[in-house]
Nucleic acid binder design. Structure first.
Lengths: 229, 229
DNA sequence: ATTGCGGTTTCTGTATACACAAAAGTGATC
DNA sequence: GATCACTTTTGTGTATACAGAAACCGCAAT
């Protein structure tokens, strides 16, 4: 029956290892599995509902992602995020994003960025609308990142960026940005987009450098603030 | 992205998955397993002398390293190296090495670089001595890279650099550099080292940029030459 | 009270068996 | 001779069983 094969392809019974990977990754990124949390194979395998073999494969991928480390004797644990590691991550991020933006401004196809420009112009309004607006703003940023990735056309660079963004997702969680910072960030993004549209790699690179500098300062300040309470 | 440093005690027999990983990785890097070569689980497991489970783990790590890709229908194959991918890799490498050198020049502890400087001054002599000298020269470069990694003190950045160097090892194999290029490269390295010792991040960064530009040109020329024969 | 030791338990590392899907081979029919 | 259905083979995905090692716990000795 053709419906059967179709269902097998589309209805997508994901492989168990893939399911385990996505679930664990998601739980780590949204903080459900906190830094330092122990991952025991049998325990996690039962919880997720797969056997140990696919679970091990999932954990191996998480280790490669840098989200999990094997610990000496027993099991694995979720990597923790220190203030130092945030600064270090941003040193890598600076290098990658500046290069990516530079390439995007060089090879740009302006159309998608024109659309994004329009969206970012109205971003400050969005940020007046509370949590829903903030969420929409983050979606916008995702779209910008996707557009940049597409414009860069470099699997190596995009891959490295993806890895960095994985860690950033965790950092954002523990240092929620304030509205003022988000408005400033929107303006910075707008400048970057304009530089890409204008085909000015140097301007785009400098604007990105500044943006990331401010972003790091804001993150560190937010964490400082949190830890004082 | 750095791979698990493995919890192996000295003297302890290596885990089967680790053995499989190292052997396959080595064979891919030195060209024994050529780009495009198929990796069948059962076949490779028998050859290496481990069962399928650890072999799968090894392959998963190779995929994370970007040395192997899962292919359409069946099995896995060694990733191939196109001219395009070399240029792309160098775009990433530029970003990482420039940032690394910049940081090394900022945080430098001059001592190890002083020693390396002395060694690089005599590098041209080394290159007169045929293959043995060339090999020694490559060892010198490894030491320079190690010194930079240590000076950078950034696991994220160093991890990304390691990944890039993995791919570079394969590229070097298929584009052996000529002695003239190596002599020029030695001079370029000397300039970079001097900039680090002088604590001049900007000079070091620019010198690195130039060096990588020349390096890419040389690699592409060598490949062009080879393919014409 | 603390520390050293041995048994117990738990967990990982590895092998293997089974199930299911895809490709290749085979034969029959037109 | 070509094409299509069916069988066989091959290979992956998953579960599970087994072995060895590390942590835990209680007991005893100082």
């Amino acid at each position: 029956m053709y419906t059967e094969t179709a269902m097998l392809r589309l209805g997508a019974p994901l492989r168990a290892s893939e399911r385990a990977y996505r679930q664990l990754r998601g739980e780590i990124l949204n903080g459900l599995l906190a830094p330092g949390a122990a991952l025991l194979e049998v325990e996690q395998a039962e919880r997720i509902g797969v056997s140990r073999t696919p679970l091990r494969e999932a954990v191996a991928r998480l280790i490669a992602d840098g989200l999990v480390v094997g610990r000496r004797g027993r099991g694995f644990e979720v990597t923790d995020i220190s203030v130092d590691s945030i600064s270090e991550l941003y040193e890598l991020r600076q290098a990658l994003e500046v290069q990516a933006i530079r390439l995007a401004a060089t090879r740009r196809e302006p159309a998608p960025f024109q659309e994004l420009r329009d969206a970012f112009v109205t971003a400050p309004d969005l940020l007046e609308q509370g949590d829903i607006g903030v969420h929409r703003y983050y979606v916008l940023i995702d779209e910008l990142e996707d557009a940049i990735d597409a414009a860069v056309e470099n699997p190596f660079l995009v891959g490295a960026l993806r890895a960095v963004r994985t860690h950033l997702a965790r950092i954002r969680r523990l240092a929620r940005s304030n509205p003022r910072r988000l408005r400033a960030a929107a303006a910075e993004h707008l400048l970057i987009i304009d530089a890409i549209i204008a085909g000015d790699p140097s301007l785009a690179a400098h604007a990105t450098h500044i943006h990331l500098h401010q972003s790091l300062l804001s993150v560190l300040a937010a964490i400082e603030e949190d830890s004082e309470r």
